[in-house]
Structures are given as structure tokens and as C-alpha cells.
Design a protein around this nucleic acid. Structure first.
Length: 304
DNA sequence: ATCTAATTCAAGG
DNA sequence: CCTTGAATTAGAT
């Protein structure tokens, strides 16, 4: 889908050159400071449209587009690297770590597939390209890795796709700042997968069809009633709180050991204060018009 | 060089 | 959108 000239969406310029990045003194290619890869959408920019899958930086801006020029910023920290080049470099994170960051920064500790895509693209312009390819990989990662659990939607929470959350036992998978490759994958033992923990026979019936029951090898999934649970958990409901041997409470718990490293997302975004700086999910906003507002805390803005 | 995690392609539900 | 598998790439030792 090309946008042939004419009416450009208001966010078009930002597609080409997505704004501001923070220079670092690290060299490209190394496990650089996260900052070098982060870009910032202008605060207050309302841009709910999908990112066009364009290559960047563009050799020839299409008609109607114009490269957004970053407000000049002191470059004393850069080693002469073009910040545009840096900003569009591949971030030093595996998909698994990206997904994990996305989920953990979410106030609800669970996100839909599309919210995960969106979060990644918001932060890393690199992933505004080849969306088909890496999004497939994201899906593969979600399904394949036991550290991610699918939480199906509650009936009263309509929408597309399930939610994804971290398995409560996955721990800190990137302990030593190893965001590229973990030492070991988090894999559930066969027994842990065929759920039996804390599941009553009654709960067993809930949301469960016989043929859907696989002997083993089935990844854990949380029932819709659990998703419901987390919505009004102060409401005292107890709907299937242990459906699959997992409790939504566990999934949603905000563990604090995560990303407490200098280069971690929370360090960079939170910078001292609570990690409660909200990245708002589109769901919570009626039309998504404010989608980009408040995404980036001011702490990020005045880094360094 | 080896081991195995991560990525990619892609079929099938 | 979700799951799987097979093949390939690539990080770490």
C-alpha cells in the first residue's frame, strides 16, 4: 500500500525520520547503551495510524514526505555517527527480550499481540521495516517459548487476539544484561505443562473441551474467566483462580528484579521513579487518539 | 569447533 | 491469530 502523493496522514513525516534520538559514546555494534537505539516521538503527537512498512532512511523521500529534521542537539557524546543511522540500527535485543520488556512495562502486565508490535515499533524505528518478517518471528517466539503464556479474553472484554503475559516462574531471564541470548531457555518440564497444580475437577470443566485436552506438551493457557478475574479482582470474584495451575495474580504481579540494570528499559524510562509511568494501551483509549501521549516519560526526555 | 538459542520461512489449524 | 517444524544463522564458550 503506497501512499501516492496526495493526502498524507499527519504522521507521515515522522515515519521517515522519527524524531529525536539520544547519542551515546558507545560504538555501534557493541552491546551499546540502550539510549542509542531509542527514538522519541514528539510528546503530544497524535498518530494512531499504523506505521507504513517503509525502508529508512529513505534515499528519496516520496512526494509529500519530508524528512523530519531533529532539533539540533549537542553531539558532544557521539563518535561522529549519524544519529539517523544509529537510530535505525538493529537494537541489541532478541525478540524474546523485546517481548518481555513490552509486557513488563505494561501496567496490566499483559498485552495483545498487536500491542506488542506497537510498543516495539514505537520505540525502535528499525522495526518499522520488514514488519511481515519480524512479526512472524514474534508470533513464533510467543508460541514457542514457555516463558510466555497466553491469556484468553474474558467474554466481557471483546477484542482481537488473546493477551500475553510472562510465566510467573520465568524469573529474570536477562540477568546479566544478556538481552541477545539467554544461557538457557525457560522450558517447562513435561509435568509442569500438563497442568495439575491446584486445579479442581470443577475448574477443570470450565472452558475446556475434551478434544482440546492434549496429554502433554500443551502450553499453559489461562482461561477467559481468569482474564476476567484480573479485571475485577478487587470484586472478590474467584472464578477459576487456578484454572491451569496458574493464577492471574501471579502473572500480573509486578516483580521488581526485572530490568534493574543500567541499560534496562525501566532504568531508562523510569529513571528513578516508579515504573508506573504508563504506556497506555490502545484499549484504554477510545479512539486511540491519545495513543502516543504520555508514552514517553519526561524522565526520558531529559536524559543526560 | 561445538553447542544450542534465536531467527526465518512457511504450512496447517 | 496461533502452533509447529525444519532449516539456517549466530552468540557464547
Amino acid at each position: 500500500m503506497r501512499m501516492e502523493g496526495q493526502e498524507m496522514p499527519e504522521w507521515a513525516p515522522y515515519c521517515v525520520e522519527p524524531v529525536e534520538i539520544y547519542p551515546t559514546e558507545t560504538t555501534m555494534g557493541s552491546l551499546a547503551n540502550l539510549n542509542s537505539y531509542m527514538t522519541l516521538n514528539p510528546v503530544g503527537l497524535s498518530a494512531p495510524g499504523p506505521y507504513p512498512d517503509c525502508s529508512s532512511p529513505p534515499t528519496n523521500p516520496s512526494p509529500g514526505y519530508e524528512a523530519y529534521t531533529c532539533p539540533s542537539r549537542p553531539r558532544e557524546n557521539t563518535k561522529g555517527y549519524d544519529r539517523r543511522t544509529v537510530a535505525h540500527s538493529k537494537p541489541p535485543y532478541s525478540y524474546i527480550s523485546l517481548i518481555t520488556m513490552a509486557i513488563k512495562q505494561a501496567p496490566s502486565k499483559m498485552l495483545t499481540l498487536n500491542e506488542i508490535y506497537q510498543w516495539i515499533m514505537d520505540l525502535f524505528p528499525y522495526y518499522r521495516q520488514n514488519q511481515q518478517r519480524w512479526q512472524n518471528s514474534i508470533r513464533h517466539s510467543l508460541s514457542f517459548n514457555d516463558c510466555f503464556v497466553r491469556v484468553s479474553r474474558a467474554p466481557d472484554r471483546p477484542g482481537k487476539g488473546s493477551f500475553w503475559a510472562m510465566h510467573p516462574n520465568s524469573g529474570d531471564m536477562f540477568e546479566n544484561g544478556c538481552y541477545l541470548r539467554r544461557q538457557k531457555r525457560f522450558k517447562l518440564a513435561g509435568q509442569d505443562k500438563s497442568v495439575k497444580t491446584g486445579r479442581t475437577s470443577k475448574e477443570n470443566e470450565v472452558n475446556r473441551t475434551p478434544e482440546k485436552e492434549r496429554s502433554n506438551g500443551e502450553k499453559q493457557e489461562l482461561g477467559a474467566c481468569q482474564a476476567l478475574l484480573m479485571e475485577d479482582r478487587e470484586g472478590g470474584r474467584e472464578l477459576g483462580s487456578h484454572l491451569m495451575g496458574l493464577d492471574v495474580e501471579e502473572l500480573v504481579r509486578d516483580t521488581h528484579y526485572d530490568f534493574s540494570h543500567p541499560f534496562s528499559i525501566s532504568s531508562l524510562m523510569g529513571s528513578g521513579e516508579q515504573s508506573t509511568m504508563g504506556y497506555r494501551t490502545p484499549e484504554t483509549l477510545g479512539d486511540g487518539s491519545a495513543f502516543y501521549q504520555g508514552v514517553y516519560a519526561s524522565s526520558l526526555l531529559n536524559a543526560s
